Amino acid sequence: MLGYASLWLLARRDPPATNPVLLAAERIDLRVLAPNAFYAPFDLQVLERAVHDGVCSLGAAEGIQLSFAFEVLSPVIAGIPLPAGATLLNELGCRGSLNSDQCRRA
């Protein structure tokens, strides 16, 4: 993900002839989405803060807003079978932070 963000920043500096609209974004939020069980064995708060601070500084140097975070997917979609249709889409929009069990809509 950080590699893709780096490529995006390079493309902004030297845009292709087609100049895609994506390169005009003024804010990019880098997110790792996974179920809580994936994160459970790890203490990721220090890493999350360090990466966030680094990408914020990089973004500021490039005149844009960058952020980074690990987000927890809804437990409804962490198991098998996955819900279908509208339920799945609704639950994909419900994310929490590593430090909270609260769902917030993306």
Rank of each mutant, 00 (worst) to 15 (best):
37 A>T: 15
10 L>C: 12
40 A>D: 14
37 A>K: 15
18 T>H: 11
50 A>C: 05
57 S>T: 12
52 H>A: 07
70 F>P: 00
48 E>Q: 15
56 C>L: 11
12 R>S: 02
90 N>S: 15
5 A>W: 01
71 E>D: 12
67 S>V: 03
31 R>G: 09
56 C>Y: 10
102 Q>M: 02
35 P>C: 14
55 V>E: 03
38 F>G: 01
90 N>C: 11
37 A>P: 04
101 D>S: 15
18 T>V: 10
81 P>K: 02
94 C>D: 12
34 A>K: 09
39 Y>T: 01
52 H>C: 01
27 R>S: 14
43 D>F: 03
86 A>E: 14
91 E>H: 11
70 F>M: 00
28 I>W: 10
13 R>Y: 02
73 L>S: 12
36 N>K: 15
100 S>E: 00
21 V>T: 10
27 R>N: 11
102 Q>C: 01
94 C>K: 15
87 T>F: 02
30 L>G: 04
60 A>R: 08
32 V>C: 10
10 L>R: 14
50 A>N: 11
67 S>E: 05
40 A>I: 06
100 S>G: 04
25 A>T: 11
95 R>C: 13
49 R>H: 13
45 Q>A: 14
15 P>Q: 01
19 N>R: 10
103 C>R: 13
76 V>P: 03
93 G>T: 03
74 S>K: 01
31 R>D: 07
95 R>Q: 14
30 L>E: 01
69 A>R: 15
56 C>A: 13
20 P>N: 07
81 P>N: 05
13 R>L: 11
93 G>K: 07
5 A>M: 13
104 R>F: 09
2 L>I: 11
8 W>H: 13
13 R>I: 03
48 E>M: 06
24 A>C: 08
9 L>I: 06
88 L>D: 01
14 D>Y: 08
17 A>Y: 00
90 N>D: 15
62 E>P: 04
67 S>I: 01
48 E>P: 00
60 A>D: 06
56 C>H: 12
97 S>Q: 12
89 L>H: 10
80 I>D: 08
96 G>I: 08
42 F>K: 07
7 L>T: 13
6 S>H: 11
103 C>P: 04
